[in-house]
Amino acid sequence: MDPISYLRENVGTVLFYGEQHFLVVLCAIALGSAISIGFALLVSMDAGSQRWSLDWIVGAVREGALVVTAAALTVPSLALLVLLLPLFGLGAATTVTALTIYSLYTVLRNSVAGLSSVDASVLESAKGLGMGRLRRLIWIQFPLAWPVILNGIRVATLIDVAIAAVAALVRGPGLGQLVLTGLSRYGAANAFNQVLVGTLGCLVVAAVFEIFYAVVERLTVPRGIRV
């Protein structure tokens, strides 16, 4: 059977796994972004204080977090998944946790870069007009950094969509299940089709995310800074 007719006959199953895949990545990205952006906001607040020691500590914490999350992204997915198994058991919890961890670095790095790249003169005039730290962060820094942050979320999503396929090896949900089934039925009818659909399905899930982010960007990036 060729892949197209396979897909036609099993559209329900494939959609089911695709939806699982999408949702598991969505959960992880939502969690990871919330953590990373929250943390970045905390450590990127335009200090403007003359408390150098505090600035230094905040800087060290920021760099430390980047180093640790970068290291986490280096750990092979299967290794991280099995390391999490004793804590979260087989299935979705481990998968979401691992994908969340993988999303941290990219979102964090873009958030820190975006927030710190806001033009110094803009911040100075905000301060000169009497905006407090928090207001500067919410009115000025965050909206101006948002396009860069959103791009980080986008890239993290692409990475997570690929990694999520491996989660099937710890009974995680998603399109990896199709690849795993196909692999275990090597030589049987449709085994190849299952692997093919499972693999390319990830690209379709990624495309859905891309469309989603394009819409979000359209709706949330202020007109004055849209390229």
Binding site: S121, V122, G130, I225
Partner: peptide
């Protein structure tokens, strides 16, 4: 911050909020 709201401030780079 309260003080600065009572004082106008203009700088060379203008620093208008682009968004």
């Amino acid at each position: 911050d309260q003080l600065r709201r009572r004082i106008g401030y203009v700088i060379q780079q203008v620093g208008l909020f682009p968004h």
